[in-house]
C-alpha cells in the first residue's frame, strides 16, 4: 500500500518534514505545500537531506505555493516534481492513503 504524505511546514520551523521522512515507508510519496515548499528548495541547510530522501521517496512540491512566496520553480531541487492543485488531487487518488504531517 502506497501512502501520500503531505508536509505543510518549513523544515526551519518544525520537524514535520524530518518526522515524515523518518516514519514514512520507503516507496511512499511526499508532497510539500504551504510553507512546506521551503523544504524543496536548493542550497538550504536541508537540501542534502531532502536529496538523500529521494532515494526512498518520490517527492512533489505544489507550484502555486512556490510562486506565492516569491520563489522560482528553477530553484527546486532536481528530481522533485512541481505539481499544481490538479496534480495534488491526482496524487491523492493515485495513492491509497493520505497522511498529513501536522
Amino acid at each position: 500500500m502506497a501512502t501520500l504524505h503531505t508536509v505543510n511546514k518549513s523544515p526551519f520551523e518544525r520537524n514535520a518534514l524530518e518526522s515524515c521522512l523518518r516514519l514514512a515507508k520507503a516507496g511512499s510519496a511526499v508532497l510539500l505545500f504551504e510553507d512546506g515548499v521551503i523544504g524543496a528548495m536548493r542550497n538550504t541547510r536541508f537540501s542534502d537531506k531532502v536529496t538523500q530522501a529521494m532515494n526512498d521517496f518520490s517527492i512533489y512540491v505544489l507550484g502555486p505555493d512556490i510562486q506565492a512566496r516569491g520563489l522560482d520553480n528553477d530553484k527546486v531541487i532536481d528530481g522533485i516534481q512541481v505539481v499544481d492543485y490538479n496534480g495534488f488531487v491526482d496524487l491523492t487518488t493515485e495513492h491509497d492513503t493520505v497522511q498529513s504531517w501536522l
Binding site: 505543510n8 504551504e34 499544481d84 492543485y85 490538479n86 488531487v89 501536522l102
Partner: peptide, 26 residues
C-alpha cells in the same frame, strides 16, 4: 479542516483542493 480562516493557510488550501477535485469530477 483543523484551523480557522486567515491565521493559517489550511482553509485556503482546502478550498483550492476541493475546487480542483470537483472540477475533475470527484
Amino acid at each position: 479542516i483543523n484551523e480557522g480562516p486567515y491565521t493559517h493557510q489550511a482553509s485556503d488550501s482546502a478550498l483550492q483542493f476541493v475546487k480542483a477535485a470537483l472540477h475533475k469530477g470527484h
